[in-house]
Amino acid sequence: MSPLSDRDRQTLREMFRDLKYPVHLQLFVEDGNQGSDNAKVLVREVVRVMPDLLRLDVFERSRDSLLAALYGVWEVPTLILCDQKREDSGIRFIGLPSGYEFAALIEALLDVSQNRIRLSEKSLNFIRNVEDDIILDVFVAPT
């Protein structure tokens, strides 16, 4: 059964009109993992709505372990969004991007496609010059 209804697909088609440049989705999965199977089905369905601009590559974490290590993948499923030049946008979805995460996924696809960064130039200049590793964990509720 498809995870998207006809109405969902129609809504996505309308939202994806704002896509500007291609987005490469790199999905890392593992055989026999239920979450991976569900993620494959869901992400394939999303990509199918706008195949000209959304491209999907699926990797087996154990088989493509070098690539997984390069991307820092430690859980499956992990979805990585890369821009039109296949450069890592830094955006990752760990776990199945469904429910409330699904809206975040669609927003992220639009952000990467439009190269949209929601920070001021001043903040960006500061961040570009930071030499230390920084980890930000943000805990939120979905509502």
């Binding site: 230390d132 590793d133 920084i134 980890i135 930000l136 964990d137 943000v138 805990f139 939120v140 509720a141």
Partner: peptide, 14 residues
């Protein structure tokens, strides 16, 4: 991370 209320942002450097 002792999260008892949201939103909570934890920043780690280095």
């Amino acid at each position: 991370n002792a999260v008892y209320a949201v939103p909570k942002t934890i920043i780690r450097v280095g």
